[in-house]
């Protein structure tokens, strides 16, 4: 059997090309992208509202204000109560599970597309990069919207509890009170929410995308969801 020209190595694609393909995919799949993003938005909104609410509560306690509504004894305690920690941890879990689930579903239903791209000559790394870009963008925008909604919710709740005093003592920036604890402030909470949403979305999609990209194309295309 004669030896023909040897098979060359596949080239890496410029980053701009990946960016273009991933944005096009998000745009055309807009409806589906919105649903996935909504999952992220909800998770982060819940987390940020609980967290901000807590920050507001602490800031007003420190200012010596009592809630205008007679609440339970935890408002008279100093620092974060067990119930608040419990709420934050719970909302964090709900957020992680919700986002991971949205991303897993969104990638799994695209296994065939991944297989097809590999048939056309895509490198495994390129496929993973596409999904990272898409999910990173979805994660960030979803989380930002979620964080803003969450903050708004917490502010409305705060208004109900503390009235307009809320705005005099609003914990916008981080402060370090004398007792040595750290108050993050609402801006940092929003930022953390955005970063967390993005990281979770990226991890949630990178894992299944990487798994699908590693599969031989025939197997990826056979996968039924």
């Amino acid at each position: 059997m004669q030896q023909r020209t040897p098979i060359e190595e596949q080239i890496d694609l410029p980053f701009v090309e990946s960016l273009r393909i991933s944005f096009q995919s998000l745009k055309i799949r807009f409806g589906r992208s919105i649903i996935t993003t909504a999952g992220i938005t909800l998770g982060i909104a819940f987390l940020v509202s609980v967290w901000t609410n807590n920050e507001i509560g602490l800031a007003l306690q420190e200012s010596g204000r009592q809630s205008t509504i007679n609440t339970f004894e935890e408002t008279t305690e100093k620092g974060i109560s067990t119930k608040d920690i419990w709420l934050i941890v719970m909302s964090l879990i709900v957020c992680v599970v919700g986002i991971a689930n949205s991303m897993l579903m969104a990638v799994t239903e695209r296994f065939r597309e991944i297989g097809t791209m590999k048939c056309l000559g895509a490198l495994d790394g390129f496929v993973v990069r596409l999904f990272l870009l898409e999910s990173g963008f979805q994660g960030f925008s979803g989380a930002l919207i979620g964080a803003l909604i969450g903050t708004l919710g917490a502010v409305l709740l705060g208004l109900k509890d503390y009235g307009l005093d809320l705005f005099f003592y609003f914990p916008l920036f981080p402060v370090q009170p004398e007792d040595g604890t750290m108050r993050l402030g609402v801006i940092v909470v929003i930022l953390l929410g955005c970063v967390l949403g993005m990281i979770l979305a990226v991890i949630g999609s990178a894992f299944p995308a990487w798994r699908a990209a590693k599969l031989p194309p025939a197997e990826a295309m056979r996968t039924e969801v």
């Binding site: 023909r4 040897p6 098979i7 490198l123």
Partner: peptide, 17 residues
Amino acid sequence: DGQNMSQLSQRQIAAFR
């Protein structure tokens, strides 16, 4: 084309496809 497919690297397989 005379190439043993099992000896190709991932990049070569992608280029082949």
